[in-house]
Computed example of a mutant assay.
Amino acid sequence: MNDPWTIDTLHITLRLLLALLLGGVIGFEREQNNRAAGLRTHILVCLGSTLIMLLSMYGFAEFAKLDNVRLDPARLAAQVISGIGFLGAGTILFTGKSITGLTTAASLWVVAAIGLAVGAGFYYASVLTCALALVSLFLLNLVEQKYFHTKKTLFFKLEATDSPSLLGRVVTMLSKQGNVIQKLSVEEIPMENGNRLQITLMLRLAKNVKVAQTVEELMSLDGVNSVSCD
């Protein structure tokens, strides 16, 4: 490898295998958390960016020998960094109440950078970045859940028999738990045997309140026939 524009097949193989390993490690963590982009996606992104970096550095070796040709190995790499955004955008979802997938999109961007570093032979930085990414995704996630746990915002839908003070009892029960009702809507549904109510709540749960506990207590109220939670 004395010529900076050439590389042997052994080093090509080692770099691609290392990209598979590093991308797979991060992808495995995402897969364990049932994210949109998991093991295979992260492996493919890392492998693809590694191949593009190899192509950018060594794929045009014949042209490097020409006097009037100047090669820039960073050109294709720059396109990967900007182009990976379309894949990351596909993992970001706006559900009307929250935005999810930002961390997975960021992990794809980091995996692409790791692949470029591996392709360039920047082994130490790529392995260290992979390790730090895992610390951020796994260990810091545990710390965040334990010490910075934010209240969950969920949608509850109740199907109930139209009866006096039902809405008041629902609101009172939820408020006693320390929950915060952010939105509330009531729709009356005419039925042959009496009117039914469909109550929709956007509820911010208190820190120590469980979803199952809230559903059970709502179901225990007189007149409530069904409860669903999104």
Rank of each mutant, 00 (worst) to 15 (best):
residue 38 G to E: 07
residue 119 G to I: 10
residue 9 T to H: 13
residue 27 G to Y: 11
residue 112 A to G: 15
residue 17 L to I: 13
residue 38 G to N: 04
residue 29 E to W: 06
residue 52 I to G: 01
residue 144 E to Q: 14
residue 204 R to I: 08
residue 39 L to A: 04
residue 114 I to A: 03
residue 38 G to Y: 08
residue 65 K to M: 01
residue 114 I to Q: 11
residue 70 R to F: 07
residue 185 S to T: 12
residue 149 H to G: 06
residue 26 I to Y: 13
residue 124 Y to E: 07
residue 157 K to P: 00
residue 183 K to D: 11
residue 144 E to Y: 09
residue 97 K to S: 07
residue 74 A to Y: 07
residue 200 T to N: 11
residue 164 P to K: 13
residue 79 Q to E: 05
residue 130 C to W: 07
residue 139 L to I: 15
residue 127 V to P: 04
residue 6 T to E: 10
residue 220 S to N: 03
residue 56 S to R: 05
residue 207 K to A: 10
residue 212 A to S: 06
residue 39 L to T: 06
residue 1 M to S: 13
residue 159 E to P: 02
residue 69 V to G: 11
residue 165 S to I: 06
residue 13 T to Q: 06
residue 87 L to Q: 11
residue 21 L to I: 15
residue 62 E to V: 04
residue 67 D to I: 00
residue 70 R to S: 04
residue 119 G to M: 09
residue 65 K to P: 02
residue 2 N to R: 11
residue 214 T to Q: 01
residue 76 L to W: 00
residue 135 V to A: 14
residue 171 V to C: 10
residue 223 G to N: 01
residue 33 N to F: 05
residue 148 F to G: 09
residue 93 L to C: 09
residue 201 L to V: 09
residue 131 A to D: 06
residue 178 G to W: 12
residue 98 S to E: 14
residue 93 L to I: 15
residue 86 F to W: 09
residue 103 T to F: 12
residue 167 L to K: 13
residue 68 N to S: 14
residue 228 S to T: 10
residue 93 L to Q: 14
residue 99 I to F: 11
residue 97 K to D: 08
residue 44 L to S: 08
residue 101 G to R: 10
residue 54 L to S: 08
residue 55 L to R: 03
residue 154 L to N: 01
residue 100 T to V: 13
residue 127 V to T: 07
residue 230 D to A: 00
residue 220 S to R: 02
residue 129 T to R: 02
residue 139 L to D: 08
residue 199 I to F: 04
residue 132 L to E: 03
residue 138 F to W: 14
residue 81 I to M: 10
residue 158 L to P: 01
residue 75 R to I: 01
residue 189 I to P: 02
residue 40 R to I: 08
residue 122 F to C: 09
